[in-house]
Design a protein around this nucleic acid. Structure first.
Length: 511
RNA sequence: GCCGCGUUGGUCAAGGGGUUAAGACGCCUCCCUUUCACGGAGGAAUCACGGGUUCGAAUCCCGUACGUGGUACCA
C-alpha cells in the first residue's frame, strides 16, 4: 500500500519571496495535486537572529496571488500543527538526546572562539580541511573526549553547549534523487554538523528531518544548494526513524542570472531592471521597496507558466500551460539537472500570451486599479471590457493598458500633429468638416456605418481614403497607434467622435 | 583547496547510438494592415574540449576545461 503523498515548502521568513522559491512552491504544489496529496507550508524560523518582520505574512500573500494555496500551514491549520518551527522548539531536543544516547551524536562545549582557534591551528599546519570532523573531534571540548562525569558536571552546571552529529569515517552515504539518480558521498569529508544550537533551537539539519518525519512528508523537494548537506540528513533519518521511512528527495536546479553566471539574486533584478520577487517587498528596517512581478503588471497565470517551464517541460512543443494543464502534465523526473538563466524577455512574452488568451473581464479589475492610480475612474464595466478586449493584443504587461487605451476615456492631451501637418490641405479640412455633418446624421452608430460614410465622402471628394485615415486616427487617438480607427469611433460614441474631430480641426487649421 | 552537481544556438529547450539536430523567446527580411500591434512566411545562429567504445557518437565510458553550489551554533 502506498503512502499518502505529502510535500512541503519550508521557507525561512527572512525577506522577499524569490522567483526560485515560488518555483519550488509550484513544483511541490503540482506534485501534490497530481497525486491527490497534501501541500504543506512550514515556516523554518529557527534562526532568531534573522527574523524579519512581516516576511511570513508576505510569503502567504504571494502564494495567494499565485493561486498556490497550502492544505496545511500556520494560516490554514492542519493535523500536524504547529507549522512554525520556533513553536516546535521543545520537540527537537529529545531527538538530539536520543542520538547522543545511541552514540550517533555528542555534546560539544567549545566556544566559537575555541573553534576559530582550532581552525587557525589547522591552517598553520597547512590543512585544507577546516571542518569540525572525525579528525579533530578527539581534541575538542566535547563529550567524546571528556569523561562521562565531566560531561555531566558541565551539563548540570548549565554550560552552554551544542549537540553535534557524529559522522563515522570511511563510509559512503547513498542518496537516490528523483532528478539526478544515485549520488554518493564519502563520509570522510562530511563534518560533524551542529544539530541543536546553544540556544536550544535546532539547526535546519535536525529540524528538517524531525519535522518531515512528524508531518509524514513523503517527498522532499528543495534547491540544489542543499545537496552537499544531504548526507547529514540521510544519516539522521537512518539513526532516528529508519531509511525506509525517509521521504524521496529531489534537488531542484538553480535559477541563474541572465548575464554572467551564478544564482539569480535580487540585486541582479535591480541592476538589470526586472523583478525577482513575486510581489512588492518593503524592507521593514529601511523602508526600501523591491518591485514584484505582480505590481509591474504580471498575471499569476503567466507567472506560474513561465516558472514551471524554467527547468521543466513535458517533452512536447506545448509552451502555454494553465495550472490545470500543469497539474496533469507535470512530472518531477522531467525536471532538468542543470540551472537555467532567467530571461525576462521570454517572461514578458508569456504574460503577453496570457493577456491575449484570457478574456479581458478576467483581469479588468486589476487594470481598473491601474487606471484609478492614473486618475481615471471607470464607471461603465461593459464599456471598459470592450475597450480592453479591443487593445489587449498590444499589451505585454497589465500596466500597458493605460498607454494603449487611456484615449477611450478622455480625449488625448496632445495630438501628434507633425504626423499630419506636412500633408494637410484645405481639401482635407473640408472633408472633415463635411464628415462631421455626415456623422451627425448617422442613424445607427456602428463601425460599418461610420466607415461607409467615410469612404463615400472620400470618393465624392475624390481623395484616397487612405490619406484620410491617419489624420482621423490622430484626431481620435492622438498618436499613430491603436486598433482600427472606425472601431475606436464606434466605441467612444458619436458625440465624442465629433467633438474630437472638431477640436483637432481647429488645431490643424490654426496657422 | 576539498567535496557535490552540471554543460545542445545569445536565452529557454526537444532528442538519450543512425535525425536535414525539433520548437519557443529575442534579432533580421518579407506578407497582411495606408497607424501600432496580432497573425502568417522565411533567415542567421548550436551538441564545451580531448581521448576511447562502435560500422556509426549530441547520445555510452574516461579524462580535461569551464560553470555552479556547499564547505556556519544561516536556511
Amino acid at each position: 500500500m502506498s503512502k499518502k503523498i505529502r510535500v512541503r515548502f519550508a521557507p525561512s521568513p527572512t525577506g522577499g519571496l524569490h522567483l526560485g522559491g515560488v518555483r519550488t512552491v509550484l513544483y511541490n504544489y503540482l506534485f501534490a495535486k497530481k497525486h491527490c496529496g497534501d501541500f504543506i507550508v512550514r515556516i523554518e524560523d529557527t534562526d532568531q537572529t534573522r527574523y524579519v518582520e512581516g516576511a511570513e505574512d508576505y510569503i502567504f500573500k504571494c502564494l495567494e496571488w499565485c493561486g498556490l494555496q497550502p492544505d496545511e500551514s500556520v494560516l490554514h491549520g492542519g493535523a500536524y500543527a504547529p507549522y512554525r518551527q520556533s513553536e516546535r522548539k521543545d520537540m527537537y531536543r529529545q531527538y538530539a538526546e536520543q542520538l547522543v544516547k545511541d552514540g550517533h551524536a555528542y555534546y560539544a562545549f567549545d566556544t566559537p572562539e575555541e573553534i576559530e582557534q582550532m581552525r587557525e591551528l589547522l591552517k598553520e599546519k597547512g590543512s585544507h580541511n577546516l571542518q569540525y570532523d572525525h579528525n579533530i573531534r578527539g581534541n575538542m571540548n566535547n563529550s567524546l573526549r571528556l569523561l562521562p562525569e565531566e560531561t555531566q558536571k558541565l551539563l548540570d552546571a548549565g554550560t552552554p553547549h551544542v549537540i553535534r552529529i557524529k559522522i563515522e569515517p570511511d563510509e559512503f552515504v547513498h542518496l537516490s534523487d528523483m532528478i539526478r539518480g544515485d549520488i554518493s558521498f564519502d563520509t570522510n569529508i562530511v563534518d560533524d554538523k551542529v544539530l541543536l544550537k546553544a540556544d536550544g533551537m535546532p539547526t535546519y539539519h535536525l529540524a528538517v528531518v524531525v519535522d518531515d518525519h512528524l508531518m509524514k512528508i513523503s517527498h522532499a523537494f528543495r534547491g540544489e544548494e542543499w545537496l552537499p548537506s544531504a548526507p547529514v540528513h540521510v544519516l539522521l533519518w537512518k539513526h532516528l526513524f529508519g531509511l525506509d521511512a525517509m521521504p524521496q528527495w529531489a534537488h531542484l536546479p538553480l535559477i541563474l542570472k541572465p548575464d554572467g553566471n551564478g544564482k539569480l539574486s535580487k540585486r541582479d533584478g535591480d541592476r538589470l531592471g526586472f523583478p525577482v520577487y513575486a510581489m512588492d517587498w518593503t524592507d521593514p528596517k529601511t523602508g526600501d521597496i523591491t518591485k514584484g512581478f505582480k505590481e509591474i503588471g504580471f498575471l499569476p497565470e503567466a507567472f506560474n507558466n513561465l516558472l514551471a517551464v524554467l527547468g521543466w517541460n513535458d517533452g512536447t512543443e506545448q509552451e502555454i500551460f494553465s495550472l490545470e494543464d500543469l497539474i496533469e502534465k507535470f512530472s518531477i523526473e522531467k525536471v532538468h539537472k542543470g540551472g537555467a538563466k532567467f530571461d525576462f524577455e521570454k517572461a514578458k512574452w508569456y504574460n503577453h500570451e496570457w493577456i491575449k488568451k484570457l478574456p479581458a473581464s478576467h483581469y479588468a479589475d486589476r487594470v481598473k486599479i491601474i487606471f484609478a492610480n492614473k486618475g481615471i475612474i471607470i464607471t461603465d464595466d461593459n464599456y471598459f471590457n470592450a475597450v480592453l478586449e479591443l487593445v489587449k493584443d498590444r499589451c505585454t504587461l497589465l500596466t500597458d493598458f493605460y498607454e494603449q487605451s487611456a484615449y477611450f476615456f478622455e480625449s488625448p492631451g496632445t495630438l501628434d500633429v507633425d504626423a499630419v501637418k506636412p500633408k494637410w490641405s484645405a481639401q482635407k479640412s473640408e472633408f472633415f468638416s463635411e464628415y462631421i455633418i455626415a456623422l451627425r446624421s448617422l442613424e445607427v452608430w456602428d463601425m460599418a456605418n461610420i466607415e461607409a460614410a467615410f469612404k463615400e465622402l472620400a470618393a465624392a471628394k475624390n481623395i484616397k481614403p487612405g490619406e484620410l485615415q491617419l489624420p482621423m486616427r490622430i484626431m481620435l487617438v492622438g498618436g499613430k497607434f491603436g486598433p482600427a480607427v472606425f472601431s475606436i469611433a464606434a466605441l467612444i460614441g458619436k458625440e465624442e467622435t465629433i467633438s474630437r474631430v472638431q477640436e483637432a480641426l481647429l488645431l490643424l487649421n490654426a496657422d
